[in-house]
Design a protein around this nucleic acid. Structure first.
Lengths: 257, 257
DNA sequence: AAGTGGTCTAGACCACCTG
DNA sequence: AGGTGGTCTAGACCACTTA
């Protein structure tokens, strides 16, 4: 196929295209089209997407162009390449990538399984600070839940989680208790909400009476406060979470480059 | 050039090759060759490296292969590409990328210039925990320095820094005081030591008497402890740093994906 | 053997920057 | 105008997986 004229990349007659964005490199547009399919749930988490040659034929571009688009999506952790097998939609509901967002490590650096213990789960009206973060109105329906993560029976993390009520309609304490595996895996399979990115603000705080009690430390004890805002497709915020970490036997690990 | 047989990529007769590693994709080998030039200081921080076509001719591969090698080095922040101008060796000594490793942000999210105030700088014998981190012997010569970072005259960060004595021979309090600009910039230009990667362990701790005094907070006040180990080429550890952050007006910002 | 992603090439043209 | 990185193509072959 000859290079498309730069002013009309992907002609409107292409079946897969109905609202091509303003000009940008072809592979960026392909990236956008693939992202839209992912967002629409055409290809579900864990499943394989069509092969590069297949996609190239669909979009009427060369394999190399599809390849570059997929490369970037893989770099963003939306897709996972597996040589000889295919390209798959990334998922939180897998053994290998459990706790993709949790950076807490034991002192020895060897990640261990943690026990999850739900404290409560209720539907509330969003307080102002939650509404601001989740980009909804103060007073809108939200789900609030609190839980502990424990190692060897000792509490290490006390999480308070806020979710938009509209997206998580059937979420109850019972369903949470039933579900084995990481929470983000459940959000994916049970509610079709996939977290693709998050921002964290980390501070040191003194334990208040309630959290001290939860974590089994004295009031005033220094805790790591990790405020996380998670986003789904389209940079839409869908979870606000505040974790208090006891960092006596653990630390938050980060890599800089 | 025809594809090289996979068992002898880059023949030994190539001028640029004298110790090619075991088999790996061509672009990986090119990447290694470029990294070696960087490490040897052939191309200095801030300078342009030869053009893609130039390098392709030198290494006797296609532009695309050099391109892929440079792509990865740019992703690792070793190189910076500038369209129409060339590809440049990354540097810490630049306005745009000041404090590449500092994730501390004011509450409003707008980074501000910080005042640097040196407290002391002395040559010591490495304590055991420092020697372990810096991969040298306990008792080896090291440089220890302590300093504050301040905003609006108020101390926010109290750093204690350990450096291998052999690499930082002429480092004195005077030279530190003279130098304007970020410390990693000075390490680069004055000592030829470039930090390319770091690992951080973050905890919440209670201020002891000394650090409380330095930061102007009461003893026992919760502080963020950031222990950073920085590496130069070849994953060689060259700096151990422990920062205590007052997170009343600031937070440590992190992005997850 | 057939299908997938991974590497490599050679050549074209575009977008951007500088003299 | 000429050089640089950026995009795109078409085709070849390699490495890995599965049947």
């Amino acid at each position: 196929m000859a290079a498309l004229p730069s002013t009309s990349p992907l002609s409107a007659s292409d079946a897969a295209v109905d609202a091509a964005p303003a000009f940008s490199p072809l592979y960026q547009q392909i990236k956008g089209l693939i992202t839209r399919e992912l967002q629409a749930g055409v290809w579900k988490p864990g499943e394989a997407i069509p092969s590069e040659l297949d996609l190239a034929a669909r979009f009427k571009v060369s394999q190399g162009t599809v390849r570059k688009a997929i490369d970037e999506l893989a770099a963003d952790n939306l897709l996972v390449r597996r040589q000889g097998k295919g390209t798959f939609v990334a998922t939180h509901a897998e053994q290998q990538v459990q706790y993709r967002f949790l950076r807490l490590m034991p002192e020895d650096g060897v990640p261990r399984d943690m026990e999850r213990r739900l404290i409560d789960c209720q539907r509330l009206r969003a307080p102002a600070h939650v509404a601001r973060a989740l980009d909804c109105r103060s007073g809108d329906a939200v789900v609030q839940m609190r839980r502990l993560l424990l190692t060897a029976g000792k509490p290490v993390v006390f999480d308070e989680i806020w979710l938009p009520g509209t997206l998580f309609k059937g979420l109850t304490a019972e369903r949470l208790a039933e579900y084995k595996g990481p929470m983000y895996g459940m959000f994916e399979t049970e509610f079709g909400v996939r977290m693709i990115r998050a921002e964290e603000k980390i501070r040191a705080v003194a334990a208040d009476a309630a959290s001290a009690d939860m974590l089994g430390v004295p009031p005033g004890f220094p805790l790591l406060s990790v405020e996380r805002l998670s986003f789904t497709y389209g940079d839409k915020p869908v979870e606000l979470r505040r974790g208090l970490y006891n960092t006596e036997q653990h630390h938050y690990r980060n890599e800089l480059n």
